[in-house]
Design a protein around this nucleic acid. Structure first.
Length: 290
DNA sequence: AGACACCTGTAT
DNA sequence: ATACAGGTGTCT
C-alpha cells in the first residue's frame, strides 16, 4: 500500500515518539519477517540495549539508526504497518515483530509492533556496512525532492529505458525513488501526459513539467498524511486524507474532474492504470508551437 | 517486457 | 469461485 507519502507520514509520526528511546527487547513472532544479519559479520552485536538515534526515509524504506552503527531497515510493501502502543497491548493476528522500547528517562515502557496482513513486508537488522546487501536499497534512484535532480536528469534516466512504457519506468524504483501506482497516475494526470507513451518519447519540457508535478503531488500528499483507501494508517492509527483529492486513481469509468469525459481504465506494466483520454492525449493538443 | 511468486482479505 | 489490492524479487 504505502508509497513515499505514506512512508514519510509513518516516519514523521514515529520520530518524536521513538528517537531517543532504547530497545530493551526485539522479538520476531514470525521468523521470515525479521532478517537479522548481525551475527554473520558482527557476532555478539544485538539491537537489545541500544538507543534509537534517528529515523530516516529513503524511497519507500524506513531507516532506524541505532547506536554502535547498527540499523533497522524496514519496507512495508503492501500492508505493513507500525503500531506504537503505550501502554503495551496484547498481540493480535498478523503482529510479526514486537519491540519493547524504554524512554530516555527509563520510565515509560513502549511497545512498537510491526503488523502485516499479507506478510510481504520485511525488517532487516544489520550493521551500517551491510546496507548494500539490500539490493532494492542499493540500486534506488534519486529522491524526487533531491535538489540535484532536474528535468534534464529525469529525461536522461527515461532515455535509458526509452522503449518501455512510461508507466512502467516511473514505477521502477531505480529510475526515481518512492512512486507507486497511485502517485504515478496522479502525477501523469496533473502533467497531462498519457501513461501509454514510451518513456523515450518525452520531451525535455515534458520532463520538467512531470518532475515539478511529481513534487507537487507528493508534497500535497504528505501534507494530507498520505492516502488511506483500505489499510493504510500511520503509527498512531491515524488515516490520511489524500484519497479525497485523487483525480484518477481508483476512478476508472468515472467523469474526469477537469473535462467530464469518462476516465479510461487499463492495464500497464501489470498494474491497473487510469487516465483521461482528453486531458492526457497521445499527441499533445497544443503542439502547434515551433 | 511479462508472468509468476510471495500472502491474506475483501468484493463481486 | 474468481478477481483484485498501495510492492518488489526472480525467472523466463
Amino acid at each position: 500500500m504505502p508509497e513515499l507519502p505514506e512512508v514519510e507520514t509513518v516516519r514523521l509520526s514515529l520520530e518524536p515518539l521513538i528517537v531517543g528511546t532504547r530497545i530493551s527487547e526485539l522479538k520476531a513472532l514470525h521468523a521470515s519477517v525479521l532478517i537479522d544479519w548481525t551475527n554473520e559479520n558482527f557476532p555478539g552485536l544485538t539491537a537489545e540495549g541500544l538507543q534509537i538515534t534517528a529515523i530516516r526515509r529513503r524511497g519507500k524504506y524506513l531507516l532506524f539508526d541505532l547506536e554502535n552503527d547498527l540499523m533497522l531497515v524496514a519496507h512495508l510493501r503492501m500492508t505493513g504497518q507500525f503500531k506504537y502502543q503505550q501502554p503495551p497491548q496484547a498481540l493480535v493476528k498478523h503482529d510479526h515483530v514486537a519491540f519493547r522500547l524504554v524512554s530516555a528517562d527509563a520510565v515509560e515502557s513502549i511497545q512498537l509492533i510491526f503488523h502485516d496482513t499479507r506478510r510481504f513486508g520485511r525488517i532487516w537488522l544489520l550493521h551500517r556496512s551491510q546496507q548494500d546487501r539490500i539490493a532494492g536499497l542499493k540500486t534506488l534512484g534519486p529522491e524526487p525532492h533531491d535538489p540535484l535532480l532536474t528535468g534534464a536528469i529525469l529525461h536522461k534516466r527515461l532515455q535509458r529505458r526509452a522503449q518501455s512504457n512510461l508507466k512502467a519506468v516511473l514505477l521502477d524504483q531505480t529510475v526515481i525513488a518512492g512512486l507507486g501506482n497511485i502517485y504515478v497516475d496522479e502525477s501523469l494526470f496533473l502533467s497531462q501526459i498519457n501513461p501509454t507513451r514510451i518513456a523515450g518519447s518525452l520531451t525535455l519540457a515534458e520532463c520538467d513539467r512531470l518532475l515539478n508535478n511529481i513534487r507537487e503531488i507528493l508534497t500535497r500528499a504528505v501534507h494530507a498524511h498520505g492516502t488511506s483507501i483500505k489499510d493504510y494508517v500511520d503509527a498512531l492509527n491515524v488515516r490520511g486524507t489524500f484519497q479525497y483529492q485523487l483525480q484518477v486513481y481508483g476512478r476508472g469509468n468515472q467523469a474526469c474532474n477537469v473535462c467530464g469525459q469518462a476516465l479510461i481504465k487499463t492495464q500497464l506494466a501489470g498494474r491497473t492504470t487510469v487516465y483521461c483520454p482528453h486531458c492526457q492525449p497521445l499527441k499533445p493538443l497544443q503542439s502547434k508551437s515551433r
